[in-house]
Simulated scan of single mutants.
Amino acid sequence: MSLRIKTADGKEGWIMEGETLEATDKLGRSAVYEHRGIEPTANGYGIHLHNIGDGTETFVEPAWFTQRKIKKTK
């Protein structure tokens, strides 16, 4: 499944399940994630990301991307 995102630097694009991306926040901290899909939540849906660096799983809202610069890595 693909997901349309808008990033902190005003770019818009699509990420597909299985793609990896580097996310950098406004403090300059970055991490590499694999997009694992979209799952329903009580408030709509959560975007499932796997942090490749530390092995953790996280679920974010679309606004998470607007607070970061995103660079596809694969």
Rank of each mutant, 00 (worst) to 15 (best):
50 H>Y: 15
74 K>W: 13
3 L>Y: 13
71 K>G: 07
37 G>C: 06
69 K>Q: 13
21 L>H: 01
4 R>G: 03
10 G>W: 06
72 K>N: 04
20 T>I: 01
64 W>F: 15
6 K>A: 12
32 V>E: 15
65 F>Y: 12
32 V>D: 06
69 K>W: 13
29 R>I: 11
37 G>P: 01
73 T>R: 02
2 S>W: 06
44 G>M: 10
37 G>I: 06
42 A>Y: 13
64 W>K: 05
56 T>Q: 11
74 K>Y: 14
22 E>N: 00
43 N>V: 07
44 G>W: 12
33 Y>T: 00
23 A>I: 07
17 E>C: 00
16 M>R: 04
5 I>C: 02
36 R>K: 15
42 A>K: 13
51 N>G: 04
69 K>D: 15
30 S>V: 00
43 N>M: 10
17 E>R: 00
10 G>Q: 03
58 T>G: 12
29 R>T: 09
46 G>R: 10
18 G>M: 05
31 A>D: 09
54 D>Y: 11
2 S>H: 04
25 D>Y: 02
43 N>R: 06
6 K>Y: 08
58 T>Q: 15
42 A>E: 15
23 A>M: 13
12 E>H: 02
38 I>N: 07
60 V>Y: 03
21 L>I: 06
52 I>D: 09
61 E>T: 09
52 I>Y: 07
4 R>Y: 13
55 G>C: 08
72 K>R: 09
45 Y>L: 04
45 Y>R: 01
40 P>T: 08
66 T>R: 10
28 G>D: 12
46 G>P: 03
15 I>G: 01
23 A>W: 04
74 K>G: 15
41 T>D: 12
46 G>Y: 13
57 E>L: 06
33 Y>K: 00
57 E>T: 01
25 D>R: 00
47 I>F: 09
20 T>E: 14
13 G>I: 04
58 T>K: 12
39 E>I: 14
71 K>N: 12
68 R>F: 14
58 T>Y: 08
15 I>Y: 02
3 L>I: 10
2 S>K: 02
12 E>V: 06
50 H>S: 03
27 L>E: 15
66 T>M: 14
9 D>R: 00
73 T>Y: 06
59 F>W: 15
72 K>G: 05
19 E>R: 00
64 W>D: 14
56 T>G: 07
66 T>Q: 13
40 P>E: 13
69 K>N: 12
16 M>F: 11
30 S>E: 12
37 G>K: 03
23 A>L: 14
15 I>V: 11
24 T>A: 03
14 W>Q: 04
15 I>R: 00
70 I>Y: 03
38 I>C: 07
10 G>N: 05
8 A>R: 03
37 G>Q: 05
47 I>R: 03
43 N>Q: 11
30 S>Q: 08
63 A>H: 02
9 D>Y: 05
38 I>V: 12
59 F>C: 02
47 I>Y: 10
27 L>S: 10
74 K>M: 13
49 L>K: 01
57 E>H: 07
6 K>D: 09
35 H>W: 14
36 R>P: 02
21 L>K: 00
61 E>Q: 12
6 K>F: 09
45 Y>F: 14
23 A>N: 01
4 R>I: 07
53 G>D: 15
23 A>R: 00
19 E>K: 00
13 G>E: 05
3 L>V: 05
46 G>S: 08
16 M>N: 09
51 N>E: 11
51 N>T: 04
48 H>V: 12
45 Y>N: 04
69 K>T: 15
54 D>K: 01
30 S>M: 10
16 M>T: 06
